[in-house]
Design a protein around this nucleic acid. Structure first.
Lengths: 226, 226, 226, 226
DNA sequence: CATGAATGAGGGTTCATTCAT
DNA sequence: AATGAATGAACCCTCATTCAT
């Protein structure tokens, strides 16, 4: 794999609606194929077939197999970003707890939709340097925002807001990937319970009160005493 | 890939010291090659070459490429288990905090040694069903032990010890993999700081006091007030 | 070798003339390569090269090496069947002698064309169960027809028409293979003489008069007396 | 495969009894292995293992795999020759019928013992030129003897004793191979019946009376009328 | 632009044969 | 002599990518 910078730019600027639609169809098919077969066994021919297209045409929209993967990841990232923004859109000045809940909910929602695909995307695919750079940039961006939130919140109890933010972000991402975005059905857990525990985990880490359960179940002491 | 049970058993029971040494050399080389090239590009010829051996010889010790991976994972698991046991060996009746510290330290130590390899092992390799079963069995075992520890400790504040144990185990494993066992050097962080934050994370989740820092740096409030 | 039923089916149904032509070219090349090198040494790369094609293309038409062999045998069988039918087509009610002559002539004609190939096909190739079943079915079919002919002919002198038919069929097939379909040029004999002797052999076995020679040479007694 | 004449001569002249015994053990094992696995899959390692020997030792007795096959064929030929001689030993002046019976019985006996092996030996193995030459020489020798027998017998009715002898020899050999020396159990027939029909076939071909059945079953007309 | 047949480097694996011990 | 680990050429087959139509 060469790392020439242009390698992952789509081959054409699809101004025409038809071309856009075809690109999308290819990406959707690739998502299905990767989810079912994994990256290595998700051949370009299979993807083209799933998109009801010839391989030749596929290569008119994407210069190589990797570029399809990259585009899929970008979409995933965009979707995640939008999911968070949507959840925070209504709130004027979000509290730390609200931000946490929004992020966790968004992450779970985004990954619950196609767990197998996200496992392929983030665990078993070769990630070209360009993509990694994008990934890191996004993470840094999120961490920076998060650090700001933490620093501005006096009820948060952390020594180093930047480090804490990074750990919170990483924790959420890792656990969601690990628990939600997995191919093995028997490792998935009840999402409501997982959401609650994950929020509890990061809240308590930050010195914030744990979220209340919506289903009436609680902790030993809080349930009994509080 | 067939799932015949014998598919991953080493081809010969190496009783002679020379054979044992060769097997180890192959595994070490495979570790290096996989770490550098990933699983798919880590060809058996490359592995053999790295082991200063012919492919033919390699296949006298392992029936196929997968079996090398499986053996590598088994070794990793054993190493991890031993690492935990060692750290707990001296302590008569370990507290929850001591157990957590032992597990976290062991996990970090084990993964810090060859981060790239562990990423390959756990993120980008095809895991045959047999191996997954082993992995899950080990995790369940650890979770069961952990749940016992939590249930026996009255200072621990959790609603469901089993669920909490599972989340703690998963958190430690995920974050260590994510932060320590990664190919990208620039995503690795200061291990001492990471250790402290990870312990803080799980301790606070369980309602336990956060561990003290050994380097004099502390949290805002504890440093100032406590 | 698995015995999955689809293993030997050609990969695509070649409707387009070009594809049909390519398939045929592959089969012809395979025939040549097998005939020259034998089955084991007749590699797919060699076949592809002989067909002026890449291996990859070859594998677009046949799923594996065995399937090429199987198809070659099927063609041979079809050719043989047609060769017999052609020779019997003109005759309204064929006598036993006419049937025998038709079968012998057809068999000799079919095998004389590419003796080396037929030796490979029937003597030194691994024959998958599916193929054997086809072979036996065809033989049984032929034997059944033959038994009918024998039973209906009062001049035929056999105790068990079925057994006799089977022996006649086997004899013709074996001797033709042995004498005609052989790689060793120096073991081949004059075909006209062979034809005459083979017909004499089976005719006399059935209690029928031996065929007359067309070249004036005859047996001791018939030449002198008859 | 080179065709240097010495390629198939055993590597040592085994004057010592131990060495002779080892050679025999190797050949016996090779026979078993070839019979079970075929020639291609009958690896030298498997043969050595079956002989309870190391590969290295095997190669002290045979210069290569082919030479094992060749020796196996030679033994088979010797066995066949001896089998015929034994059956003719008691008879002072054998009639043609007696010779035929002796040959047929010997051939059937020799091949009935290990059908699968003989199929491998004569149908699916690469036969080096040297071996073919030996085979042909033996056949010629047998044909010559047979032609002498036929020529000397006034009751035999053939135009060309040499040609007739060759066809008789070939017929017996082919049919015995085809019917007796085959791996497919379901193609084997009742040997007594086969013997009778084969003798009938060649006897009638030669103008001799068919042999009498020992089991009381006979032909339609001869049984009823004659 | 679309098609899909064609390409061919490269992968995992086998096995006849050698050679250090 | 015997051993069996080691060798490596060669096999079958896959799949990302190209290009003639």
């Amino acid at each position: 794999m060469t790392s020439a910078a242009h390698r992952f730019r789509p081959r054409k600027d699809p101004v025409q609606a038809r071309a856009v639609e075809t690109r999308d169809r290819i990406l959707d098919s690739a998502a299905r194929v990767f989810a079912r077969h994994g990256y290595a066994a998700g051949t370009t021919n299979r993807i083209a077939e799933a998109a009801d297209l010839s391989v030749g045409s596929l290569y008119q929209y994407f210069p190589n197999k990797d570029s399809i993967l990259v585009e899929l990841v970008r979409r995933h990232l965009d979707t995640g970003r939008r999911a968070v923004e949507e959840r925070l859109a209504g709130v004027a000045a979000a509290t730390t707890a609200e931000v946490l809940a929004a992020v966790v909910d968004a992450m779970i929602a985004v990954h619950a939709e196609d767990p197998a695909l996200h496992q392929v995307l983030f665990e078993e695919s070769p990630r070209p340097p360009e993509l990694l750079a994008e990934l890191h940039a996004l993470e840094d961006e999120v961490v920076a925002v998060g650090a700001g939130v933490l620093a501005a919140d006096p009820t948060v109890d952390v020594a180093d807001p930047e480090l804490a933010a990074r750990l919170v972000v990483t924790t959420i991402e890792s656990l969601v990937h690990r628990v939600v975005a997995t191919r093995d059905a028997d490792r998935r857990v009840d999402l409501a319970a997982f959401r609650h525990e994950l929020l509890t985990l990061v809240s308590r880490y930050l010195g914030l009160p744990a979220p209340e359960r919506t289903d009436g179940r609680g902790r030993r002491d809080t349930a009994d005493v509080g």
